[in-house]
């Protein structure tokens, strides 16, 4: 499987991981103040940023760079 396939697969996995149904009624608190459901989704946001960092490195659209060249004076 190529980079695009892996990226699509991980993207779908991230969408599934968003549904943290196992934490629905979990009232535990992290670090004494952060409800676990909120902590999970805050960490999820960081993982999503790392995912996009991988995406722009691995599959940056080459044709968009061509447009840069076309537009150059």
């Amino acid at each position: 499987m190529g980079s695009k396939g892996w990226i699509l697969l991980v993207g779908i996995l991230l969408a599934i991981l968003h549904q943290d149904f196992w934490l629905w009624d979990d009232g535990s608190v992290l670090f004494g103040f952060l409800p676990i459901g909120l902590g999970y989704h805050a960490a999820y946001s960081i993982v999503v940023a790392l995912y996009w960092w991988w995406v722009v490195r691995a599959v940056w659209p080459a044709d968009s760079e061509t447009s840069d060249d076309e537009a150059a004076p």
């Binding site: 993207g11 969408a15 968003h18 459901g37 909120l38 989704h41 805050a42 999820y44 999503v48």
Partner: peptide, 14 residues
């Protein structure tokens, strides 16, 4: 409550 973050913010990040 806290679910509002998952409704909008973490979905929006993706």
């Amino acid at each position: 409550g806290i679910g509002v973050y998952g409704l909008m913010a973490s979905w929006s990040g993706l």
